[in-house]
């Protein structure tokens, strides 16, 4: 049963990684626009960002 000393912390650690990742996505606003975000993934590295960069320069 000694293996438990390794396994339990490992399981908890993995679970915590998932929880923290979820909290991060929530905080980053990734669920604010569920519909739009699916399309944004298909946008090319496009004009919008170029414009944005131009402005920053």
């Amino acid at each position: 049963m000694d293996i438990l000393i390794l396994l339990i912390p490992a399981a908890l650690f993995l679970g915590l990684v998932g929880l923290v990742a979820f909290m991060w996505t929530l905080r980053a606003g990734q669920y604010d626009d569920i519909e739009g975000i699916s399309y944004r993934a298909l946008f090319e590295e496009d004009d919008i960002e170029k414009e944005q960069k131009k402005k920053e320069d």
Binding site: D32, D33, G36, Y39, E51, K55
Partner: peptide
């Protein structure tokens, strides 16, 4: 929309939310 508004220098960031 975002492309057009990005040309405006006074606007720092414009973001459309399709769900709302």
């Amino acid at each position: 929309i975002e492309g057009t508004l990005a040309e405006n220098k006074k606007i720092k960031n414009a973001r459309v939310n399709l769900s709302t």
